[in-house]
Design a protein around this nucleic acid. Structure first.
Length: 112
DNA sequence: AATGTGACTGACT
DNA sequence: AAGTCAGCCACAT
């Protein structure tokens, strides 16, 4: 429990663990499902670090081996500058809405 | 030390 | 429904 007026900041060790957790969670996203940066951050225990999830997936070499195309924003938007992401998702049955975003209602994976 | 930058989110037009 | 904005936080300069 952290003081509400003093934001807790990650130590380098925290960051290392967080990165590991993020990659492990992404590895578990089922085929045909997606999850959000915020969901992953919360599951890893750092609810306010959704931006860090994006950074990790963008820059970690290990992400090449993971289904990181199954990570989208809470609005269902795919990653900027990565057009293949949409194709990959469609190939595994993920459906999109008329606005071009993933149908989150149908495909949002949130483990209990 | 200070500032700018995102693979983000929530609230508000 | 689609944009804007402020808050978010580690990192790079």
């Amino acid at each position: 429990m952290y003081p509400h007026d003093v934001p807790y900041r990650m130590s380098t060790e925290d960051a290392r663990c967080f990165r590991n957790d993020v990659l492990n969670i992404v590895a578990q996203i089922p085929v045909g499902k997606v999850t959000t940066y915020g969901t992953i951050a919360a599951l890893a225990g750092w609810p306010d670090h959704s931006r860090m999830v994006g950074r990790i997936l963008r820059y970690s070499p290990e992400s090449a081996l993971l289904p990181c195309h199954r990570v989208v924003t809470i609005a269902g938007r795919t990653a900027p500058g990565w057009n293949a992401q949409r194709t990959l998702l469609q190939q595994e049955g993920v459906t999109f809405r008329s606005n071009g975003n993933v149908d989150m209602q149908q495909h949002w994976w949130q483990p209990v």
